[in-house]
């Protein structure tokens, strides 16, 4: 549970780590758009290349990046299979009884996998691995701050996110502790039918809720004691000024998008419809 790819910051001193988090959030959005612009072999190759460049820029070990992909392996495999067997095209490669595999299907499968993998690597490299959760929530608060004029509680949302990030490892540890305690009383979580298993969760969920509420109460008091009174008049220790160099990656991503569109128009290699 502790190794879920959530706020898995990887400390390093890389250009991506130093980049302004607000820029990184914008970059991420643009990068996602880019990945959906890809339509043919060359553009997907370019996209894959950009993902590799991102890993190099972030100086995160490839082992850790690949581990981040592990949870989606099943989805990757499933979409690949779906594409291979269900895409009908013109170039029939293989046929046996009702199974027909077309070249288009193979291409589509590869494209889909590259798209999902780059999406995860891209957002991971731009956000989770290279940005501390606090910097991330601060950045979101900044970027969304125009909404404050519309009375959207942007600061409160950012605060909630920070607290959630702080308490996720705690609560997962606690779940384990409570499970152990109930197992010691002979609770059985692994046998029986669906209803029985759901029932077996009650001795875990109730203590977990009680403890979460207690913690929330304690934390609220502690925050009040530390003079918390909402976002008004609050300052920040980390002030970020966007530097001119921070715009370079923005230009690069825009360039990437432009090249992708260009490659699509060029239409070299296999194209998706």
């Amino acid at each position: 549970m502790k190794s879920i790819a959530f706020g898995q910051f990887y400390p390093a001193n890389s250009p991506l780590h130093k980049l302004d988090p607000r820029i990184k959030v914008i970059l991420t959005v643009l990068y996602i758009v880019c990945s959906f612009l890809c339509k043919n072999l060359l553009s997907f190759a370019l996209l894959a290349l950009s993902a590799i460049l991102l890993i190099l820029c972030g100086r995160v070990p490839i082992r850790i990046v690949l581990r981040g992909l592990r949870p989606v392996l099943i989805i990757l495999a499933f979409t690949a299979l779906l594409n291979i067997f269900w895409t009908k095209g013109e170039q029939l490669l293989f046929a046996w009884k009702f199974i027909e595999i077309y070249a288009e299907g193979l291409y589509a499968a590869v494209f889909m996998m590259v798209r999902i993998a780059t999406l995860i690597i891209g957002t991971g490299m731009l956000l989770t691995y290279t940005t501390t959760p606090i910097a991330l929530t601060d950045a979101l608060e900044d970027l969304l701050s125009p909404l404050k004029k519309l009375k959207v509680p942007v600061h409160e949302f950012a605060m909630m996110m920070t607290i959630a990030l702080r308490f996720i490892p705690l609560l997962s540890e606690e779940t384990e502790k409570i499970m152990t305690a109930q197992k010691a009383r002979g609770a059985d979580f692994s046998s029986g039918g669906l209803i029985q298993r759901a029932k077996a969760l009650i001795p875990i969920l109730i203590p977990l809720f009680v403890s979460a509420f207690n913690r929330a109460g304690d934390l609220a008091t502690a925050m009040e004691c530390r003079c918390y009174h909402g976002g008004e008049g609050r300052t920040r220790m980390h002030v970020r000024h966007v530097r001119l160099v921070d715009f370079i990656p923005l230009l690069l991503v825009l360039l990437l998008g432009a090249s992708l569109i260009f490659l699509n128009v060029l239409g070299i290699g296999f194209s998706m419809k």
Binding site: I178, T180, A181, R185, G186, I202
Partner: peptide, 19 residues
Amino acid sequence: RSVRFRVGLVMQYPEYQLF
């Protein structure tokens, strides 16, 4: 499971187990 009934374990801060 039968071992757990023979060797009873009271965890640290066991009040968390009340439900």
